[in-house]
């Protein structure tokens, strides 16, 4: 038992280089920022009171009683009947996402960005329905816990300048290990959930599910392609997925295999993004995978190619 406790202590509490938190902070911040900005032309149609599923429609159809004025209702912006307020929500969403990306008031900005995204998701969930958009909230919670604005951020620059440092950008030091571990475990459980499910789904077992994904207009990026002609390739992709995701659950934790499985998973997510429409999902997963990348790998590659 003391031995187990010793290993768990090391697993959770050994400090870790904070590069991961910086990279993933910038990545998630950009996903939130670009994803929100991309909705600008449709903002009022998607979230406005006169928009699709808007509050005015519901009042006409179901009466004033259909407006949820409870605290929960307000949290998901249900009673908001002013387009100006929804524009303010857009401005706040982009501003907090931008602040989180550059690390300015990082923790506050991260929490607010997540809360606003949750509210928008609750107000009109169909907009974000590709992939698992709510996972971003939990992943960002780990980042906030990790104090991801401590390095390579405006916050760090302001702090170090106050302390009189001559080069506030020079170092990314060590940080708490446990938020990184939680993110690693959580990502692994996602692959476990998806991977184990494959073995109990007849479609995956017969090799047809990638074909389904490509042909279905809801998700397929190129629905006009006659995908049946590519059936052997799609069948191969199906079985590669069936093998890769459960393998990731183990191999992401094996140091010798980690680099290879990360590259394979990045290829999987990249391929999915090229051929299907799943919202922000492939970006979120690809960025999150970088939590497993060791900074020393990059340094080794750099030294090998450029020289020390």
């Amino acid at each position: 038992m003391p031995r187990l406790e010793h290993h768990l202590r090391r697993f959770f509490f050994d400090p870790a280089p904070a590069h991961w938190a910086v990279i993933i902070r910038v990545g998630f911040g950009l996903v939130l920022l670009c994803g929100t900005l991309a909705m600008l032309p449709w903002w009022q149609e998607l979230f406005g009171p006169e928009g699709l599923r808007g509050i005015e429609s519901r009042v006409r159809l179901y009466g004033e009683g259909s407006i949820d004025t409870s605290v929960t209702g307000w949290l998901r912006l249900d009673p908001v009947r002013s387009p100006a307020v929804m524009w303010a929500v857009f401005a706040a969403s982009t501003f907090t996402a931008a602040c989180f990306t550059v690390g300015f008031w990082t923790r506050t900005a991260g929490v607010l960005a997540v809360l606003l995204h949750i509210a928008l998701l609750a107000r009109h969930g169909q907009v974000f329905n590709g992939g698992w958009p709510f996972m971003l909230h939990q992943f960002m919670a780990y980042l906030v816990l990790a104090d991801c604005g401590r390095y390579a951020s405006v916050d760090a620059w302001l702090r170090l300048r106050k302390e009189g440092s001559t080069d506030p950008w020079s170092t990314v030091g060590m940080g708490s290990g446990w938020p990184r571990r939680l993110l690693m475990v959580h990502l692994t459980t996602l692959y476990a959930t998806a991977g184990l499910h494959r073995f109990t789904d007849a479609g995956w077992m017969e090799g047809s599910m990638v074909f389904v994904a490509m042909t279905y207009t809801m998700y397929g990026r190129f629905p006009d392609v006659t995908w049946f002609e590519w059936k052997p390739l799609l069948q191969a992709a199906n079985y590669i997925t069936v093998l890769l995701e459960p393998a990731a659950v183990v191999l992401l934790w094996v140091p010798r295999a980690r680099a290879v499985i990360i590259l394979l998973l990045l290829a999987l997510h990249g391929g999915l993004e090229l051929t299907s429409r799943t919202g922000w999902w492939q970006y979120v997963m690809s960025i999150t995978l970088l939590v497993f990348v060791e900074p020393r790998w990059l340094k080794q590659q750099w030294d090998r190619r450029v020289g020390t």
């Binding site: 499910h197 479609g203 042909t215």
Partner: peptide, 24 residues
Amino acid sequence: LRIQPGAALFAGNGANEYKQEHLC
């Protein structure tokens, strides 16, 4: 709490011969 992310993305179509292609 949505800790479990739910079923896989394209789940539930089983092994039927006909797959939904176009929903327009």
